[in-house]
Amino acid sequence: MTEKIGGRLIKFGDNVNTDVIIPGRYLVSIDPQELAKHAFEPMGTEVQKRLWSSQVVVGGKNFGCGSAREQAASCLIGCGIKAVVAKSFSRVFFRNCINTGLPAVECSEAAEAALDGGELWIDLEQGMVEVQGESFSFASYPESLKQILEAGGLIPYLAKYVLPQQEALKRHTPELSRR
C-alpha cells in the first residue's frame, strides 16, 4: 500500500446520516453500482453529479451516523469513491467502511483544511493526508484492520486467510469436522 489514493473531493458538514447517504427505500439492492445512483439523493441531483465525479468524500464530525446499513459504505464504492476523510465517524459506519474495503480516515485537520472541489491524497502506509498544499498525519490502523483493508474487505479477507485455515484444521482433526 505505498501508492497514494485520492483525487477530487466533495465536502459535507457535520452529522451526515446514513438515511441521506443511502435512503432506506433502496436497501432492496446490494449492488454498489445500482446503489450509487441513489447515493445522497435527498441532497438533490447537483450534489449527486459532483459526488459521481469525485474520488474522496470529506465529512465533518460524526460522519455516517444512524443506521447500521452496510450499503452506506458500499454505495460510495459504487460511486467511484476511493476514501472517506472526516473529523470523526460514527462507529458502525467506520466498521462498514473497513469491512467493505473503503479506507475511512479520521483526520480533523485535513477535513477542516479541505476545500470543496479541491484535491486530496492519502498515503495509508505513512499515515499522511495531503490537501491544499499541506500535510497532516493520522493514527494508522491497527494491524488486524490493515489486513482486512488490504484484502479488499472482511469477506475477501476471510475467504483468503481464515477459511482455508479452518478447512486445513478440519482435515487434520476429523473428530472436529463431525461435530
Binding site: 447500521a68 459504505a73 458502525v92 469491512n99 467493505t100 472482511l154 469477506i155 476471510l158 479452518q166
Partner: peptide, 18 residues
C-alpha cells in the same frame, strides 16, 4: 451492538468478530 451484514455473515462462519 449494531454491525453490518458482512460481519454477521463472518460471525455465522467463524463465530467471532473484532
Amino acid at each position: 451492538t449494531g454491525v453490518g451484514f458482512s460481519e454477521i455473515t463472518a460471525a455465522w462462519v467463524t463465530g467471532k468478530l473484532w
